[in-house]
Design a protein around this nucleic acid. Structure first.
Lengths: 188, 188
DNA sequence: TCGAATATGTCGTATATACGATAAATGACT
DNA sequence: AGTCATTTATCGTATATACGACATATTCGA
């Protein structure tokens, strides 16, 4: 389907646009970013932007869903299973998007961002859980809870914490690895 | 003359090539760098490299002479005169090329590199000295001595010192600002 | 020493992108 | 309200670049 372009020019330009967008996102709120900003940073013509994306919202969707699967697929999903390192890295990936996250949600686009991120997280968690699977439906639910949980933690970190994100998320790792509470009466 | 191209594609691609080259230079010795290495890193076709440069030696010359005048012209030469900050920055710029510099000089290309860098340094020093000029010929000679001196210091730093380059060069700053020796009998 | 791989340059053709123009939408200021 | 400036989005044409093929060098291990 959707015709995967493999012309090097296309790939490089697409990457330039996405990199530029992410760089600008670190300083500017999403709603204040113009297509001109992006094309200037990416050193491409404005018309070329529209050759690749419908508009900046389209770009946002694709950046969010691809950056996760690119940055993380390669080094993490391939042979890793769910563990501390994975969770920390995912958390860092989310918080690095603080630009879009931290802004007031008065234009209603934050929900879309949140939705996309959580969808991607869910996909990743599900893939990883299946490697050590103990039931498909259980994995599904676990993926949902983890995606919402991690994302929520990122939001909370953004609002409150002065801790570095890495330390912040590590505080809760014990609960994720060994459970949130102790079985009251367990053999052995 | 030489037809300054201003097509954005040309500019972006040229920059990509130079950035890629500098990045690779930090890890690989110049003589071990292939055109393929550069084009892969820059995400461009090999043929395109030859559209921009004759060969990797041509690229080296242009990188060396432009990087100095780009990185330094903007922030330094414009309204600055010769001072501590300028000297430190120039020194850092040179040492950051340690890749090519530090290699054994058995292919004889180090001399070319040295020549180009010194030429560029001389141009920069001369421009700066002229702002506070006390004679054209004196400025010329001073530029020559400074360019050779700074460059030599960079080479020496590379061979011997464990000091950070910034500290290293700062040790000699007093001599550059106040002279290498005291006038034996000076009025006042 | 000899092949076999890898690197260098060059060329013709196809295509992604630059450029400039355009119209319409949006926003800021009086 | 209206104007001015900026941004969005689309178009036709020109051009820089990708691609693949090619002939030479160069490197390197058997």
């Amino acid at each position: 389907m959707t015709e995967v372009k493999k012309d090097l020019r296309y790939i490089r330009t697409r990457k330039s646009i996405m990199d530029a967008f992410m760089k600008i996102s670190e300083k500017k709120d999403f709603k204040d970013i113009t297509v001109k900003d992006i094309t200037t940073e990416a050193m491409i013509n404005r018309a070329t932007f529209y050759y690749h994306f419908v508009d900046k919202y389209d770009l946002l969707e694709k950046v969010l869903s691809e950056v996760f699967l690119i940055n993380l697929n390669d080094e993490i999903i391939k042979d890793y299973v769910l563990n501390e390192e994975v969770i920390v890295n995912l958390f860092l990936a989310i918080t690095s998007f603080n630009s879009s996250l931290s802004s007031r949600c008065h234009n209603g686009y934050e929900e879309t961002i949140a939705r996309i991120i959580k969808e991607q997280l869910e996909i990743i968690f599900y893939k990883m859980l299946q490697r050590q699977s103990e039931g498909e439906e259980r994995d599904r639910i676990a993926s949902v809870m983890l995606s919402w949980g991690i994302y929520g933690a990122a939001i909370a970190w953004n609002k409150n914490s002065e801790l570095p994100p890495e330390e912040y998320i590590k505080l809760v790792i014990p609960h994720l690895s060994s459970g949130f509470y102790k079985e009251p009466n367990k053999k052995d």
